[in-house]
Design a protein around this nucleic acid. Structure first.
Length: 424
RNA sequence: GGAGAAAUGGCAGAGUGGUCUAAUGCGGCGGUCUUGAAAACCGUUGUCCCGAGUAAUCGGGACCGGGGGUUCGAAUCCCUCUUUCUCCGCCA
């Protein structure tokens, strides 16, 4: 959520910037400013009436204390009409507030000045790439064949237990999954991230604060009996740790990471590109989150990008880093880098991580601020997050790229976690 | 699931209808003293909204777990929800 101050002071700038995201904000911004003016006016009147009531009440107290009962009773009748008016204004203020807020949350975050315009993935900008793409043998199999051949991930069994998109990891498949999680967490710890193991169901307040509600409601599984949501990403519980919190500038940046299963309904997605591990309803992910000082959040972003880059390098996967164009960025992001790894048998790039700076957009909803030493006013922090990493597509790429006639070679860095170096 | 108790500022903790403008202590910040530090002493202290001002600041309003109510007036009384603690039950 953008701050009202920004919209008030730099209306034209807001409208101009949002064009990069192909969002025409002009009429929405006007409506917001109009509602804002009404709200302030209403509040001014309301506060004045409350001040009157407070003053008269104080006088009544003094009159009663000095035994002037008749005068006190007279004063009481004066407040009757004021009370009626205050009640009316309180209702009006509440209404306006809600309306203003519901409009305000329709505005996407402003893209960073370096974000280029564009409509979709085809306009994203390649930042750099690494690793070596090897040509696989003619007989190379896509991962959905490999997992059957070695019996390590079972979709049919998952369908029996739950439904499509909920695979069962078996034997070396389960162990590989566990190894990757531990590898990612250990690397994160080395990079200074504090591990947390949060709940994987959250309440409405949390889902709202990170922006999953209201616009992505249909993407989350809802536990209706308690009105809880299964998390689509650890970003939700981890970032919400900092909801309604005032931090000390000296404590920034705060680096947190979490492994969690993630749940996505992904309604309406089918086709060859979502086969096998490419898109699941439940998957594992290690997420890194930083709460940063606004003056240093882009340094934090670069640091996160190089952390993620280190992971894919160590796994020996060919990768490229894409800077998203305005049209391909999420509603809440100011700047996003996507990591893609090469899938040898599918012969295409798979997105395995998305690292973003949300600047103060999430912090404003979260009400996460910080106090600067000697500073008069609290400021909103900047929040950032990134996958480090999402497992299924990493597994898919590892299986496909590392296949040999005798089995699938496990990357060296993982061997100490798996206890084996080949899946056969 | 049953019975009882509680929720107050960064923390501890007083406050049962009207100077609560929330006592006091601890902590934090600033200062005096000191070569420096500690101790002692003095001062200061939260968040949000509205208005005035270039600004320092000033004025008004809201906030004592959340929501609602009674009253001219609520931290204080009533209703409701949530959470925590104690005891009992159940349980990996």
């Amino acid at each position: 959520m953008l701050t009202l101050n920004l919209i008030r002071e730099q209306k034209d700038f807001v409208v101009e910037r949002l064009k990069i995201k192909n969002f025409d904000a002009a009429s929405l911004v006007d409506k917001i400013l109009e509602l804002d003016a009404i709200r302030r006016d209403t509040q001014k009147n309301y506060d004045a009436i409350l001040a009157d009531i407070n003053r008269i009440s104080k006088e009544i107290g003094e009159l009663i204390r000095s035994g002037k009962k008749a005068e006190a009773d007279a004063a009481k009748t004066k407040t009757t009409s004021l009370k009626e008016e205050s009640r009316r204004l309180a209702e009006r203020l509440d209404e306006i507030d809600k309306e203003l807020r519901s409009e305000l949350i329709k505005l996407p975050n402003l893209p960073h000045e370096s974000v280029s315009p564009g409509h979709g993935a085809e306009n994203n900008v390649k930042v750099r790439e690494g690793g070596v793409i090897k040509e696989l043998e003619e007989t190379a199999l896509p991962h959905w064949e490999l997992i059957k051949k070695y019996d390590i991930i079972d979709f049919e069994l998952g369908t029996k237990l739950t439904g499509a998109g909920f695979p069962v990891y078996k034997g070396k498949g389960a162990k590989l999954e566990r190894a990757l999680i531990n590898f990612f967490l250990d690397e994160g710890e080395k990079a200074g991230y504090k591990e947390v193991l949060p709940p994987i169901v959250v309440n409405e307040d949390s889902a709202f604060a990170t922006g999953q509600l209201p616009d992505k409601e249909g993407q989350m599984y809802l536990i209706g009996s308690d009105n809880y949501y299964l998390i689509p990403t650890a970003e939700v519980p981890v970032t919400n740790i900092f909801r309604d919190v005032i931090l000390d500038a000296a404590d920034l940046p705060i680096k947190t990471m979490a492994y969690t299963p993630c749940f996505r309904r992904e309604a309406g997605s089918w086709g060859a590109h979502v086969r096998g591990l490419n898109r699941l309803h439940q998957f594992d992910k290690v997420e890194i989150v930083q709460i940063a000082h606004p003056d240093h959040s882009y340094e934090a972003l670069e640091e996160m990008v190089s952390h993620v880059e280190g992971l894919v390098k160590k796994l020996g996967l060919p990768y490229r880093i894409m800077k998203l164009c305005g049209g391909d960025m999420s509603f809440t992001s100011a700047l996003t880098y996507d990591f893609e790894v090469w899938s040898g048998a599918q012969k295409r790039w798979l997105e395995v991580s998305s690292v973003s700076n949300f600047e103060s957009f999430q912090a404003n909803r979260l009400k996460c601020r910080f106090r600067e030493k000697g500073g008069k006013q609290n400021r909103l922090v900047h929040t950032l997050n990134g996958s480090a990493l999402a497992l299924p597509r990493i597994v898919a790429a590892l299986l496909e790229n590392n296949q040999t006639p005798s089995g699938i070679i496990v990357p060296e860095v993982l061997a100490k976690y798996t206890g084996f170096n080949i899946i056969d």
